[in-house]
Amino acid sequence: MKPPKFEYRAARTVEEAVSLLQEAGEDAKILAGGQSLVPMLNFRLTRPSHLIDINKVSELDYIREKDGKLAIGALTRERTIERSALVRQKFPLLTEATEWIGHVQIRNRGTIGGSVAHADPASEYPALVVLSDAELTIQGPDGSRTTTWDEFFVTYLTTSLQPFEVLTELRFPLPKPGSGYAFVELARRHGDFALVGCAAQVTMNGKGTCQEARLALIGVGPFPHRSPDAEAMLKGQKLTDKLISEAGQKISEEVEPEGDMHASTEYRRAMSKVFTERALKKALSRVQGGK
């Protein structure tokens, strides 16, 4: 199908984007990479009055290390993140998550801010925002504010972004020394929406004890699932296969996935255990120098 009619405005700066949003009113939408929004427009599932294009807002396209955090501008393309040597060196979990997103030509256009603001329950980047307690900077008519995932993600495709606000920057705290990471995902084909996915980051001390474990799962709820209980089970312990399996079991009991024609509730629940275990084992092997 073809998109419904809308008015189009292109912004050059964040400030201009905010004022264009205000002029356009509450039915306006931001157009970033468009890899989720344009399909919905083509199917006429969404009918915004205006699209405010931020693709030329070059001030939002950057990756920097700043105060122990990786600061990424919202308009940074997924492909840029995938190829960034800085990301690969400082926060390789982000590189690995990016490789799961769609295909090269989707990642060429898709942006990190767009992915997080769209808040698809199967998207990879929201999982990393949740896993690492990233800070999100949002600019609106009254200036800028900073928020975290627990306030940001509301439900399916819904965030606490207000009508005239733009997500501008994501800041990921860098993993501590001695950390390993993994992003594993189950999809029908590579690049399809994840049925279940798990991001894991474990930090070990020199004696092989887990100092900190972080886990975030996608595809099993309205937004990524974080499990303080499973993380607490792992903290201060040796990560044996038995303990990893218990953490996976814990998570599979916590999540409430919806079934659909591709995967039932029960299957997703079972896979949330399997993929938690795989992610933890891979993360652990990477602390020990594995690939």
Binding site: P39, M40, F43, L45, P121, A122, Y156, L157, F193, G221, P222, E258, G259, D260, M261, H262
Partner: peptide
């Protein structure tokens, strides 16, 4: 299009 989110 939206079946994976419909139930939820």
């Amino acid at each position: 299009i939206g079946q994976r989110m419909l139930g939820g």
